[in-house]
């Protein structure tokens, strides 16, 4: 007599797997950290997504109260329609956050986003994409900016990886 494992691991048995969804859409926030990556994010945002929200700029205003940075500043994300959205609120409503920078660009703003993620216990993924003329040192600079803050850091050799990763994560 066949064991349970032998009976249950056939292709025939695989066809009986329940067809109900096993997860709900996840709220992803994708934030470009520099103008170069902002253009990429803008392009990628035009595809069909499961509720992912894309932001192409980060700015600060001098405010106090909940959601302010250590320096007493409030951070604002710029969305694709040009609206300013409160960083802390966006992070709080998310399931995970992705920050994207082009190699060698200034990615120090990641620390502010990381602080918001930490405050709300959200996972932060960092993605470094290539830039024309960028050197190994440029990649290193980007990694320096992101490494202290991310749970997963990816250095991609192609810009098409953004879409691949977001699709894989059901963003």
């Amino acid at each position: 007599m066949l064991s349970e494992s032998a009976r249950m691991t056939t292709a025939h048995e695989a066809s009986f797997r329940v067809q109900y969804p096993n997860s709900r859409p996840r709220a992803a926030r994708i934030i470009a950290l520099d103008p170069e990556s902002a253009a990429l994010v803008n392009e990628v945002s035009k595809r069909k997504w499961n509720g992912a929200k894309f932001f192409t700029s980060l700015s600060f205003t001098a405010e106090s109260g909940p959601g302010t940075t250590d320096q007493g500043m409030k951070a604002w994300l710029g969305d694709l329609a040009g609206r300013a959205m409160d960083l802390a609120s966006e992070v709080a409503e998310s399931d995970f956050v992705v920050v994207i920078t082009a190699a060698g660009e200034d990615a120090r703003a990641a620390s502010v986003i990381a602080a918001a993620c930490k405050a709300h216990n959200k996972s932060l993924i960092g993605l470094v994409v290539p830039k024309d003329g960028a050197s190994e040192e440029d990649v290193g600079t980007s990694l320096d900016h992101l490494r202290p803050h991310t749970r997963m850091l990816v250095v991609a050799s192609g810009r098409d990886y953004i879409e691949t990763m977001l699709t894989a994560l059901r963003a």
């Binding site: 096993n22 997860s23 995970f96 996972s123 993924i125 749970r151 997963m152 990816v154 991609a156 990886y161 691949t164 990763m165 894989a168 994560l169 059901r170």
Partner: peptide, 12 residues
């Protein structure tokens, strides 16, 4: 499947 950020090695 439902991959998470730490699965990026597999995704890549």
């Amino acid at each position: 499947e439902n991959l998470v950020g730490t699965d990026n090695g597999i995704i890549m």
